[in-house]
Amino acid sequence: MERVSTLERAIRTVLIVLVLVFFLFPIFWIVLMSFQNNDQILRIPPSILFEPTLANYTTLLTGKLQTTAGNLDIAFLKNLGNSLLLSTGSVILSLILGVPAAYAFARFKFRLGENIAFTLLSFRFAPPLLVLLPLSLYFKQLGLTDSYFGLIWIYQLICLPLILWIVRGYFEDVSPDIEHAYRVAGHSWWTTFRKIAIPLARPGIAAAGLLAFIFAWNNFVFALILASADKQPVTVGALAFVTASGIQYGQIAAAIVLSVMPTLLLALYAQRYLVEGLSLGAVKG
Rank of each mutant, 00 (worst) to 15 (best):
F23L: 15
F220S: 08
F193I: 10
L15E: 11
L151G: 10
L268E: 01
F123W: 13
A267K: 04
S136T: 05
T58P: 00
Y57C: 02
A254C: 04
E172N: 08
L280Q: 09
A69I: 01
P233Y: 07
A201F: 10
L226M: 13
P233F: 08
S94A: 15
S122H: 07
N56E: 04
L112R: 10
K284G: 08
R43P: 02
R194D: 09
G209E: 10
I74R: 00
G237W: 08
L120P: 02
R202N: 14
Y182P: 00
F241E: 02
L120N: 06
P134M: 03
N219W: 05
L20D: 10
M33T: 09
L80H: 01
T59Q: 01
D177I: 06
L54K: 07
T68D: 00
Y269T: 09
P127R: 09
G63A: 06
L85S: 04
I205L: 13
T59V: 09
L49V: 15
V283H: 13
G89Y: 06
Y170H: 15
G70D: 00
S47L: 09
V91W: 09
P100Q: 11
T243K: 01
I48N: 11
A270M: 14
A207P: 10
A101V: 04
F171Q: 13
T53G: 10
S147I: 07
T88V: 15
T119E: 02
I205D: 11
D146E: 03
V21C: 11
A117Y: 04
Y273N: 13
L121G: 07
A126Q: 05
P127A: 12
Q271W: 01
N71K: 01
A223I: 08
G250V: 02
G113E: 03
A238F: 05
V21F: 09
L97P: 06
L164V: 04
V31N: 06
A227S: 14
V236W: 04
G113R: 12
S259V: 06
